[in-house]
Design a protein around this nucleic acid. Structure first.
Lengths: 109, 109
DNA sequence: TCAATACTTAGCCTCGTGGCTAAGTATTCG
DNA sequence: CGAATACTTAGCCACGAGGCTAAGTATTGA
């Protein structure tokens, strides 16, 4: 466990930008083309495409080109690594609480 | 909602580094001093301190100096913003699924 | 008091990220 | 065919992140 550091890096980095979180959110509603997605942001297309590529290489989205249009889809599986990390974090915390309780128990006896 | 963009930025950026995730994980087990934390990483202390400051200004940890020692504590509240973002994301997805089901239902009738 | 400890400050360096423009390619529509 | 559309490629730029060393400050133990 915790061996997915590289994946976690990529996913957290990808989510650490409001534009990219916006895209993830939008794609949660369903697939969209690069053009449709880009329209929501005040930046040049090449700049926007970098965000798309970042999301794609983080595995958060998949894209495919049909004709001259590239369509993007959310890959919800990948978001699970964040959930997993949070779960692990909770687990660490709970073990700590257990130790504290045990400590108090020992004090009692 | 989704107005916490700046906070989310800071939190995701803070978590997008293995050193900092390591610190968060370690602090999940309980408070520690900067020196204790730094020992686990092969970098100079000033470099490590930057990570601590990043975590602190993201609100993920709190630190306080007593004598010459600075002690760090995890602020679990702040991790909740990540959970919240994930929950919102799930919500978006579920609404989408609902719409699809409704669409199929309409087709049926 | 003096040395060791535990940061802290200052300053420098390199690389990657996020933005841009300009020009190119490949489809599609009239 | 020719023009419009939808990216794509190339290349540039500025800034910030993450690393370093060297030197400074403030506590603490002997």
């Amino acid at each position: 466990m915790a061996k997915y550091s590289a994946v976690l890096d990529d996913v957290f980095v990808a989510l650490a930008d409001p534009t990219r979180r916006g895209v993830v959110r939008r794609l949660g509603e369903g697939p969209a083309t690069v053009g449709e997605l880009a329209r929501a942001y005040p930046m040049a297309l090449p700049s926007f495409m970098k965000h798309v590529r970042t999301l794609e290489s983080a595995g958060l989205i998949r894209t495919a080109k049909t004709g001259r249009v590239r369509t993007c889809v959310l890959d919800r599986e990948r978001l699970a690594v964040v959930e997993d990390w949070l779960a692990e974090q909770r687990h660490v915390w709970e073990q700590r609480t257990d130790r504290l309780e045990q400590f108090i128990g020992e004090e009692d006896s």
